[in-house]
Design a protein around this nucleic acid. Structure first.
Lengths: 328, 328
DNA sequence: CTGTTAGCGCATTCAA
DNA sequence: TTGAATGCGCTAACAG
């Protein structure tokens, strides 16, 4: 392996001088620089990143903890993160928890051991121990998708999205609106979206039947099952359904299609997430664009600002956009 | 920052002894070990991974270069890679080229600078310069998805998949079969799948009309457009269409639905990839399962074997499985 | 069983 | 403008 010492010798200068031309720091004569650059060119020398890290205490690596990479939201976020980080010479060290909450905590430690300069957590829950642990980290950290006191975070306005979407149904004349949600330990997706729905219904004085409220997990099948429950158990059938993710909505539509329920005439339906497929289902699914890539970019900017001791925002709430389509 | 030196002092031993208990190497008295462990516990000390790397020349990091993380194939592969690698204490350093071939080359260098122990390339092309560069790398490297001499790779049997699928159509009575492919610089997806199709058609003596052969990119829209061309330009309309990816197939189905062409009665259709959505489109799309996660796991195993100087296979071809559904 | 010593590759004083 | 010296935190002989 060729090191800075070899370059120095072959160029007839000291290691310090090589270091200087490498880092464009300090004074180096035109002559010496030329010689060093020539030798570097010839040898194909590349400085050792970890030796550098040992000195500078910087790794130029950001750890990213996520629940899965197989759904569109996190993968879009990672794309945004990567795009912004690579502009500044940072790389992403991936930590996939596979929806295992224990691993979330483990990876926090592991990434610290790896001496990452910062961490981004794509969060699915806000359990106290997790937040506690994050606060104790002496590494810049940004959470995406969930809100929390004292932790820098980038979120969506889940509550108002839910109110807006519910109101959209109502403006279209619907009064009996069902809801397919997820577990409330996911505060953003599970709790806030449900609360927005309830509050908007209440604001209009519309009652909500217990059977209209169903819960799934983050896949298509559970959307199917949720809709099945809604259709088979409700005393009064709803005329619209608000699903908190596109996949749930698509599963629900799948049930409706199978049982001859027409969308949107018999049942209007909308999701959230602007998944690619949403515009190709039949009818095209109304949804909400959350700008996930931008979330990733924003998180990257904040963490870089933090690392470089610049001012950063503790809380960023991103815009959203309803995408009106024929399913409503 | 607390270092090995601090631990040594507080435990009243030498740094070597601390190192020994850390690495479970050499002999350490029960007494000394206890004291050291206690101090580590108290201080929350974690060894610096990069200082360790500087000594051992191992980083326990595998670089992964991929064209995008937003489609199911690469994200499943990464999931498989991550699962296997994490078992052995390795992490993934992500390098997303965003379909930019130049970045593919750049990242090869960058990851080397990062001193990764190995690299995995999820390949979309086999351009000579790229292969050349990979061969010159003195780091273990595995390519996934494309075949190449002298480079360790994990691939699918794209040629026979295409023949099987084409034969499946033929066995169902189809003779006029259209084909939606992609650019042939992608040898596996573009060239081999097309060749399999042509060869199988030829084997049965079925002519292929020029207009039946259309090309898209890796998205749904281009599948729509390709089908539009097939339906509007063909002298003789085909009765079946083989699309090389599910997304192309779904785009094609979207066109057919819009123009009242019934699937599968007027037009049978199949894709490749076993995307999650394939079973929820109407009718469910026939496709081929490629076991992407397993590909990731296999690649991980090979690269770990390589790193640890164990025997590894230079070439792995994975199994596939036709998933029969109502679109054919 | 344990401590001493050396050095991995680099950036950064400090003198010259 | 340059070089010598130092040390980042760790592991690995080696000698005891």
């Amino acid at each position: 392996m060729v090191t800075i010492k070899d370059i120095a010798e072959r160029a007839g200068v000291s290691r310090s001088t090589v270091s200087r031309v490498l880092n464009h720091s300090g004074y180096v004569s035109e002559d010496a620089r030329k010689r060093v650059e020539k030798v570097i060119e010839e040898t194909g020398y590349v400085p050792s990143e970890y030796a550098k890290s040992l000195r500078t205490k910087k790794t130029k690596v950001i750890g990213v903890i996520l629940p899965t990479i197989q759904t569109e939201t996190p993968s879009r976020i990672v794309t945004g993160l990567g795009r912004e980080l690579s502009k500044h010479g940072y790389q992403i060290l991936l930590a996939n928890t596979d929806h295992d909450k224990e691993k979330e905590m483990e990876y926090l430690d592991l990434l610290k051991v790896r001496q990452v300069d910062g961490m981004v957590l794509i969060a699915t829950n806000t359990e106290p121990e997790l937040l506690q642990k994050m606060k104790k980290m002496d590494i810049p950290i940004v959470m995406i998708g969930q809100e929390a006191e004292d932790i820098v975070h980038v979120t969506y306005d889940d509550y108002h999205v839910a109110r807006d979407l519910t109101r959209y149904f109502i403006n279209k004349g619907h009064k009996k609106i069902a809801f397919i949600g997820v577990d409330e330990t996911d505060r953003a997706v599970g709790y806030l979206r449900k609360k927005g729905y309830y509050d908007e219904m209440a604001a209009h004085g519309f009652p909500v039947e217990e059977e209209w409220i169903q819960q799934g997990i983050f896949d298509i099948d559970s959307g199917y099952e949720a809709m099945e429950k809604i259709m088979t158990r409700s005393q009064v059938l709803p005329t619209a359904t608000f699903a908190v993710t596109d996949r749930l909505a698509i599963g629900a539509m799948s049930y409706l299609k199978k049982h001859g329920v027409k969308v949107p005439t018999d049942m209007a339906i909308a999701g959230i997430g602007a998944s690619e497929i949403s515009q190709y289902v039949d009818p095209p699914l109304m949804t909400v664009d959350y700008q996930n890539e931008k979330a990733g970019e924003e998180a990257a900017k904040q963490i870089l600002a933090h690392i470089n001791s610049k001012v950063f925002q503790k809380k960023i709430v991103l815009d959203y956009r309803l995408i009106e389509r024929n399913s409503v």
